[in-house]
């Protein structure tokens, strides 16, 4: 069975927390689910926060899907922030030469919600 990635609405913002391993099949479903959730959420002006603190490994394929998803959400008018990247994941991506250019990032969910303008 393909695991699903829950998409929560927190005070008008969409919050996606990616946990464990992101298989190639799940990663594409993730993209479709996020964009569909944004479509259904029409009329709201909240942002999208993608928490990747649960990902122990992010290869260039997964990184690209994350960056593409953020770009697509942005094109749909959603302020999008990726948060919670682990230090070893950040180090690995930079060593490989992939900096996720154009993706807004934040330290953790709290920091990410700040970026989206949610009052503490």
């Amino acid at each position: 069975m393909t695991p699903t990635i829950p998409i929560l609405r927190v005070r008008g913002h969409l919050l996606v927390s990616v946990q464990g391993e992101l298989g190639d099949d799940v990663v594409e479903q993730f993209q479709n689910d996020v964009l569909s959730a944004i479509e259904r959420d029409r009329g709201r002006d909240g942002g999208l926060l993608v928490d990747i603190s649960g990902l122990e490994v992010v290869d260039t394929y997964v990184a690209r899907v994350l960056a593409d998803t953020a770009a697509m959400a942005r094109l749909m008018g959603r302020h999008t922030v990726v948060c919670g990247m682990r230090p070893e994941v950040a180090a690995t991506l930079v060593q490989m030469g992939y900096m996720l250019d154009g993706v807004e990032t934040a330290l953790d969910v709290d920091d990410g919600l700040d970026r989206l303008g949610l009052p503490r």
């Binding site: 391993e21 490994v57 394929y61 230090p87 070893e88 060593q95 490989m96």
Partner: peptide, 28 residues
């Protein structure tokens, strides 16, 4: 392959950074 590389990295006492590096290379 990725999972097995990760398990062996732990068995070989890799730290989190080295483990992420070899596991990512295995994936690529």
């Amino acid at each position: 392959v990725r999972r097995r590389a990760r398990e062996l990295a732990q068995a070989a006492h890799f730290d989190a950074f080295a483990s992420a590096a070899i596991t990512t290379a295995a994936s690529e």
